[in-house]
Amino acid sequence: MLRDITLGQYYPADSVIHKLDPRVKLFATMLYIVSLFCFKGIAALLVISLFLFAVIRISKVPFKFMVKGLKAIMILMLITALFNLFLTPGEPVVSFWIFKITAEGAKNAVLMVIRLVYLILGTSIMTLTTTPNQLTDGLEKALMPLSKIGVPVHAIAMMMSIALRFIPILIEETDKIMKAQMARGADFESGNLVQKVKNMIPLLVPLFVSAFRRADDLAMAMEARCYNGGEGRTKMKPLHYENRDRAAYLIIVGYLVVVLLCRRFLPFPM
């Protein structure tokens, strides 16, 4: 039931992508997104596709896990495609009643859908190969320079990792309370909207109570271990770059350069 929802959806496997430093993966994802929105021409699209599918292969994550993320944005993709298809101004190719389809519209629609699909696939490589903890670790280290100008980077990273850590716990808790109330005859499915919201009370009250209890316990446990913020705090597994990380930086920058070169010299047929 609820157990099957995976947020942060880490897929454990033994691959180079899994072992990369999270900062590299964050940076690579950013450059990849940039490349998606500035590419031009079929050559660049080929380069991007090749790169994307190569990385998917190397990551050893089954393709169907990547596709799972696409289902969630199906509606968004459809709306985007339709809007682009019908509302792009230009010379109409087909027209009926108040609708007209222009060549530019058709092109834009296809491009937008490709962009969205690639965006989800690319970013899900990061979330599938990096544990949420690694991700916040990487984020903390990458943003550390900002703490010089007074941004509480450590506190933000700590809050993020606690929040992420609590998602599965609260999902499990929800599942448990839901079952306990169903065992007492509660019904979470039928009824109209008002009825449904009312039926949620036996679930939400215990959930809030337990969330606050857990937060209290956690705060107490952190204090008992003398946690007092990021000042002077060391890590058990500090992040440091390996050769493969440096190579990955080179590859991703090289990739962006190639995409930009394609845009400059082979910008057709788009």
Partner: peptide, 26 residues
């Protein structure tokens, strides 16, 4: 009837009496 582990975590009503009524009402 199933009583879960730590069943006290499922209490939600404003009074004890109302909480026990929840099952029979359902």
């Amino acid at each position: 009837g199933l009583v879960f582990q730590y069943p006290e975590h499922q209490l939600f009503e404003t009074t004890i009496f109302d909480d026990v009524c929840f099952g029979p009402k359902n």
